[in-house]
């Protein structure tokens, strides 16, 4: 990989005027701008996977504690989103997809976003520790740290493997949910982690294939910018082919029933087929459409997989005849 051609272009959004530093500038932010800072769509994915991790974990969690833990995880994810927007405001300002975000649009100052993110991060970790234990809180703190420091500040501007390694942050919520419910971490939540971890690269590369020029303009070394579209399509296919068997592992290891096993196989094959179509697309238009379909399906893929895992868990007591692999 050619990493050296790209260097970091910014070290967090700078405060743009002395009055902003002294706090004299009146804030222009709407409440909705602060909601937008928390990246609600990313947050919803984190909450959903954490919820599934919490529910499929052995034992029972009191509904109040479960809701409180999920609120903390949601706020922690929102804090990570706000701090990411604070640091990446320079990149966001030159990309069409992100230039209307609150900081580049001038509605929220970088200092406000930073203070908001840090407050939410500290608050969510502290309350989660009190509610669900310090293992879950520690994992949440690590997730925020990893997303901001390792991914946003370091990997994103340095290597084309940014989202491969950085995907670990997005893959941790089901583990946090499991830890909040049980107080420990076993093999099952690690399998859920691996599913989201291997799902992330094809999901983001399918998006970045359609935004290559924007990433190039922003000096972000996404794989299509550094290695080209052909190599990216090859990597998408490789990760989709890895993802399919990994998605079935909760069934193969006896943590989920046949219903999940069948669903995971079907959506895994569908994802691989879409990745093959992207790989063999000859024209730019065909590749654009194939990438768009793969990106849309990847969102559905993760939702179906975790929703079926949840349904499978709920149905198990009512369907004892449902085959389930057991060991030992």
């Amino acid at each position: 990989m050619k990493h050296s051609a790209f260097t970091a272009t910014g070290k967090g959004a700078a405060l743009s005027s002395p009055s902003q530093v002294s706090g004299l500038e009146p804030s222009l932010a709407e409440v909705g701008d602060y909601v937008a800072l928390m990246k609600p769509r990313v947050m919803s994915l984190a909450v959903f996977t954490a919820f599934v991790g919490m529910i499929v974990a052995p034992g029972e969690v009191h509904p109040v504690l479960a809701i409180a833990a999920l609120v903390c995880i949601a706020v922690g994810a929102g804090a990570a989103g706000a701090l990411n927007m604070w640091y990446d405001a320079d990149i966001d300002g030159v990309m069409g997809r992100t230039r209307r975000r609150p900081i580049p649009a001038g509605r929220v100052t970088p200092g406000e976003a930073f203070a908001f993110g840090v407050t939410l991060a500290v608050g969510s970790v502290a309350v989660l520790g009190l509610v669900a234990g310090w293992l879950a809180a520690g994992l949440l703190a690590f997730t925020i740290f990893f997303y901001i420091v390792v991914y946003t500040m370091w990997l994103k501007r340095w290597t084309a493997q940014n989202i491969v390694i950085g995907g670990a942050a997005g893959a941790l919520p089901p583990v946090i949910g499991w830890a909040a419910a049980t107080g420990d971490v076993g093999l099952a939540p690690i399998l859920l982690f691996l599913i989201v971890f291997f799902w992330t690269p094809p999901h983001f590369w399918a998006l970045s294939l359609r935004r290559t020029d924007e990433y190039r303009r922003a000096n972000v070394p996404m794989l299509p910018v550094v290695s080209g579209a052909a190599e990216t399509k090859r990597q998408v296919l490789a990760h989709a082919l890895l993802l399919a068997p990994i998605s079935v592992t909760p069934f193969l290891f006896g943590y989920a029933g046949l219903l999940y096993g069948i669903a995971a196989t079907i959506v895994g094959v569908a994802m691989a087929v879409l990745a093959v179509r992207l790989k063999i697309a000859r024209s730019d238009i065909a590749a654009y459409e194939a990438g768009k379909r793969l990106f849309s399906f990847s969102l559905l893929y993760l939702f179906i997989l975790f929703a079926v895992l949840l349904i499978d868990d709920w149905l198990t007591p009512w369907m004892p005849w449902m085959p389930r692999l057991t060991f030992g």
Partner: peptide
């Protein structure tokens, strides 16, 4: 108007936090 909206949002968030901690 925007400052008032932000103040109300902060107040609601603090009330929610108090209720959450009470319930927990």
């Amino acid at each position: 108007r925007r400052r008032r909206a932000r103040s109300i949002a902060i107040a609601l968030a603090l009330v929610a936090l108090v209720l959450l901690l009470y319930a927990v």
